[in-house]
Design a binder for these strands. Sequence first.
DNA 1: AAAGCACCCTGTACGC
DNA 2: TGCGTACAGGGTGCTT
Length: 282
Amino acid sequence: MPELPEVETLARGLQATLMGRTIVETRVLWPRSVIPPDPAAFARRLAGQTVASVGRRGKWLMIALGSSDVLLIHLRMSGRLLVESEQCLDTRHLRVLFLLDDGQRLSFFDQRKFGRLHLTDDPAQVLGALGPEPLSDEFTAERFEEMLRQRSGRIKPLLLNQRFLAGLGNIYTDEALWQAHIHPLRQANTLTVTEAHQLHRAIQAVLQAAIASGGTTLQDEAYQQADGQAGEFASKLVVYGRDGQTCPRCGQAIERITVAQRGTHFCPQCQSLAQGLGPAQG
DNA sequence: AAAGCACCCTGTACGC
DNA sequence: TGCGTACAGGGTGCTT
């Protein structure tokens, strides 16, 4: 599933390809993929617009256009964006198609139809509610520790909450918690200062390593970089999808439990719950 | 504030 | 073989 590293990789790839390109024509094959949901208006508004820049905020891809319009794209579960040549004819799961002035096309595929293309001149309305960027200068260990102190919920669902922190999904949350030796059910405000700092470092390390590998492409999965390449990080996952396999740190079997309706992978030995489920003592 | 659930979808994996 | 059902996932919105 596309999380921050996958969207970042995609944004970098698209930046090189799309900068300065003009959208000649837009074809919406699945109307619910676009916001506002009037495909004709969506297409009309995009016609003739030129790409000024491609960026990312959380899991949102941002394509800034020549006007004040921004095309915000969320891939959700199965969305894919590919720049293709004109003779590419695979239209399976194709939802939106942009014809570009250089003869190429930008194709939005989305098997499960959860993804959204949001055309707006006020991106803050969509992005404003997001928590801090985990790789930004503002996201310091001290700030993270402060954020955690104010929350009494379980750490895993909290990390998945995009209003708390932007960009983490199920895969990198499990990996970061493993790296920081923290059990997914730990209550956020019971983490020690040391643990909070470890988790902060783990989140940044996991995201940076994944970006360096071009993201994670799971088997039978849709995610691809803008040129269609698979990401290389899947082989470096330690806990995600590896239940039953041994923990490379201690040799214990990785377990899979359900937390807040999400499959959760962790090492019961390294990520002990013993240090504190309830409120901090003394 | 926290937690649970339904919803949006489809392909795959399973039981019968 | 083939049908029905459970499940995976991110995010929103509702209820408790």
